[in-house]
């Protein structure tokens, strides 16, 4: 009898502890202490565990593409700061080349416009573009929704997330947004240093930070390391068809201007520039020092290039590497498997 009781007690205990292990923490959006308020209106799409889980499943599912081979995660790989590692121009369906180098998916709640040219102004509307681009996923949104409606698992995932099995444009897009909103990168050594969380930067890194503030932070400003403006940074014209921001505004003065990218995780998001022409940070800094090409729309800050010695470049690069957020790139919550 005593033994029996003990056994029951043991079983109950084991059951409870098992359950505890199965309870995943609730997914909640948060604003890192050193960040400004987000641009995205979270009240119209409050992040929940179930909608996030749906968004994550969609993000990593090739069902979004015509032949099932390309998912969002194909060109946005977590280990590379959600970019496509090792490609100058990203590859889409049938191995077709796209126009540009894929941008990292990080801290998008703080970004008001998307793409290198800012053509999309609402994160919720973003996903339609890669889905329907002939050289990315080459699918149509109505077709994607129909495939999901006839899928074994998605209708019940939509029900769990939204209360009914209905699969609508809004639900689909907002679920994808939730996954992207949760891609918050704010745990680099730099972040922990500025938030006084017990991490100290080396003398070299700190000097690099000072140099960065003097020489780079006009454009790469604030805690997101971008002012999100569109500028011509003096690159020789690569593909003359790709006139950048001018494609969106049709304004001559925007010719060959591209968005100033954030520099968070820059170490992991090689190669650089809108067309991925530079393979290293050294090459980027060399460009700013001595590679600037004069043109009518060249940014006025860059007319004479940026004076940088070899030593200064090294220090700036040492600082830039403190923006690498290993926790983000290894966060199980965001990973495919």
């Amino acid at each position: 009898m005593k033994n029996k009781l003990l056994l029951i007690a043991f079983l109950v205990f084991a059951f409870i502890s098992c359950q505890n292990q199965n309870i995943e923490p609730e997914v909640q959006f948060y604003v890192p202490k050193n960040f400004p308020q987000p641009v995205y209106d979270l009240s119209k799409n409050p992040v929940t565990t179930a909608v996030f889980a749906l968004g994550k499943a969609l993000f990593y599912d090739g069902i979004l593409s015509r032949d099932g081979t390309i998912s969002c995660g194909s060109c946005h790989q977590q280990q590379s700061g959600f970019t496509q590692h090792g490609h100058d121009l990203s590859h889409g369906i049938d191995d077709l080349l796209t126009l540009r180098n894929s941008l990292p998916i990080q801290n998008l709640a703080w970004q008001k416009e998307f793409f290198w040219d800012g053509g999309v102004f609402d994160l919720d509307l973003f996903a339609v573009s890669p889905i329907e681009a002939h050289n990315e996923m080459d699918e149509t949104l109505p077709n994607v929704l129909n495939k999901l409606r006839n899928h074994a698992k998605y209708p019940s995932m939509f029900e769990k997330a939204f209360g009914t099995k209905e699969i609508s444009t809004e639900r689909f897009l907002k679920a994808l947004s939730q996954f992207q909103l949760m891609c918050i990168s704010a745990n680099s050594n730099y972040d922990k240093y500025v938030r006084n969380e017990g991490v100290m930067l080396s003398t070299e890194e700190l000097t690099g930070l000072q140099l960065f503030k003097q020489k780079c932070a006009t454009c790469h400003s604030g805690e997101l390391f971008s002012d999100f403006s569109y500028r011509n940074n003096g690159l020789p014209v690569g593909n003359p068809e790709d006139t950048g921001r001018e494609r969106i505004t049709l304004n001559e003065q925007d010719k060959y201007k591209f968005r100033v990218p954030s520099l968070r995780n820059v170490e992991a998001t090689r190669p650089y520039m809108h067309d991925g022409r530079f393979r290293s940070l050294e090459a980027v800094l060399d460009h700013y020092e001595k590679g600037i090409v004069q043109s009518p729309t060249l940014d006025s800050q860059l007319k004479n290039g940026i004076a940088l010695s070899t030593d200064e470049k090294q220090k700036i690069i040492a600082f830039l590497k403190t923006l690498t957020d290993e926790e983000f790139m290894n966060n199980r919550l965001l990973s495919e498997f």
Binding site: L125, S129, I131, E132, A133, N143, N146, T169, L173
Partner: peptide, 14 residues
Amino acid sequence: IGNAGMAKGMYWSW
């Protein structure tokens, strides 16, 4: 933009 009636693309996604 996800309605089949729109499938012939009355929308610029880019």
